[in-house]
Amino acid sequence: MGKLHYGYGSEAIVVPDELLAHVQALVTTKLRRSESFTLSWKQASDPTVGRSTIWLHCSIPLRFEFDTADAITLDRGYLSELAESAARGGVLIDLDAQDAPISAIARKTLEKAA
């Protein structure tokens, strides 16, 4: 499980490494182009929170931390779906799909976003 650190002193968002690699590719591409968007997630492990959202902007500190040092192969189809969602203004990811292959994560994420 990796971590996404966003802003100053905020609690890290725990994300499966494979999903975090896709989010990193999307976020770095969008922010390099000065394109801001929202990133939302639902995490069933915390029943007090329904869904969380952050506004991703290039002026806010951002750090990706992976448990694995190995490179993660990106699923271009899933990355394309994330990019299309970001172009519409926001991305919703499923943090509880930690043991699923990326195709299953993509399917669940897209179903929830629709």
Rank of each mutant, 00 (worst) to 15 (best):
Met1Glu: 14
Gly2Val: 03
Lys3Glu: 15
Leu4Ser: 02
Leu4Gly: 01
His5Pro: 00
Tyr6Trp: 14
Tyr6Lys: 02
Gly7Ser: 09
Gly7Gln: 11
Gly9Ser: 06
Gly9Asn: 12
Gly9Leu: 12
Glu11Val: 10
Glu11Ile: 09
Ile13Asp: 01
Val14Tyr: 09
Val14Glu: 15
Val14Ala: 14
Val14Ile: 15
Val15Ala: 00
Val15Asn: 00
Glu18Cys: 10
Glu18Tyr: 04
Leu19Met: 11
His22Asp: 05
Val23Tyr: 04
Gln24Ser: 09
Ala25Phe: 09
Leu26Ser: 03
Val27Cys: 04
Lys30Gln: 15
Leu31Cys: 06
Arg32Ala: 15
Arg32Met: 09
Ser34Asn: 12
Ser36Met: 03
Ser36Asp: 08
Phe37Cys: 08
Thr38Arg: 11
Ser40Glu: 09
Ser40Gly: 09
Ser45His: 02
Ser45Pro: 03
Ser45Glu: 05
Asp46Glu: 05
Val49Ile: 13
Gly50Gln: 10
Arg51Ala: 12
Leu56Ala: 04
Leu56His: 06
His57Lys: 08
His57Thr: 12
Cys58His: 13
Ser59Leu: 13
Ile60Thr: 14
Ile60Val: 15
Ile60Met: 11
Ile60His: 05
Pro61Glu: 00
Pro61Val: 05
Pro61Lys: 06
Leu62Tyr: 03
Leu62Asn: 05
Leu62Trp: 03
Phe64Trp: 01
Phe64Gln: 00
Phe64Ile: 02
Glu65Trp: 01
Phe66Cys: 00
Asp67Met: 10
Asp67Leu: 09
Asp67Phe: 02
Ala69Met: 05
Ala71Phe: 06
Leu74Cys: 08
Arg76His: 10
Arg76Phe: 08
Tyr78Gln: 02
Tyr78Ser: 07
Leu79Met: 06
Ser80Gln: 08
Ser80Cys: 10
Ala83Ser: 14
Ala87Thr: 08
Gly89Leu: 08
Gly90Arg: 13
Gly90Ser: 12
Val91Ile: 05
Val91Tyr: 06
Asp94Val: 14
Asp94Ile: 12
Leu95Asp: 11
Gln98Glu: 14
Pro101Ile: 13
Ala106Met: 13
Arg107Met: 12
Lys108Glu: 12
Lys108Tyr: 07
Thr109Cys: 15
Leu110His: 04
Leu110Tyr: 02
Ala113Leu: 13
